[in-house]
Amino acid sequence: MSSRERILGRVRRALADVRQDDTPYEQAIERSYVREHGERSAEQTVDLLAGNLADYRAIVHRCATDELAAMIAGLLAGRGAQTVLVPSGLDGDWLAAVDAERVPDRAESTPHELDRVDSVVTACAVAVAETGTIVLDGSPDQGRRRITLVPDHHICVVRIPDQVVSSVPQALERLDPARPLTWISGPSATSDIELDRVEGVHGPRTLEVVLVHGPG
């Protein structure tokens, strides 16, 4: 007998008390929890996102679409970034004013090569106000998962208000499980030493989120 058959057999024998007509999934799970906490206007939801991002030490900026190129160029210059990783589908206008050398997101780049790049700029799939979270789904304007992991500085652009949802349940509704997803809530952190929170262990130590409004 294979281990698969053995385990499934054990499970079935262990569940001898469960009747054939046991309550089906739809009725067994009562979902009396709320879809979102509180009532907010779209504007208030964006404010909540900004507040919660900042609370977990992300640096939040706001600007209009036509100011975005200057904003990104300023942030990169402010850090002295010499090189910046660029996902293949990133809107070209966003980097129009950038001096730093552009490094394309390529399959053949090694982790060591990525480690030498200073910054990365991406879009996002959705942002969650209640938890201060941005979610990346590997779309062409966000790139492979590793490009937002290895460089030490990540600039993430969120289109407001349409990319912002209130809650975790609403975010899951918008996401495609078939894509590789990364949920990011502030820069990496650890509390392993006497429960003191220290920002920046292995992921980017600086996370800047740009909330951009206006016609895309």
Binding site: A107, T131, G132, P180, L181, W183
Partner: peptide
């Protein structure tokens, strides 16, 4: 667990993805 609204990173993957991971 960590008493946070959300932990810094959550990864979700479904099988393998071409040229990513």
């Amino acid at each position: 667990s960590t008493a946070e609204r959300m932990n810094p990173y959550t990864s979700m993957w479904t099988g393998t993805t071409d040229e990513d991971g």
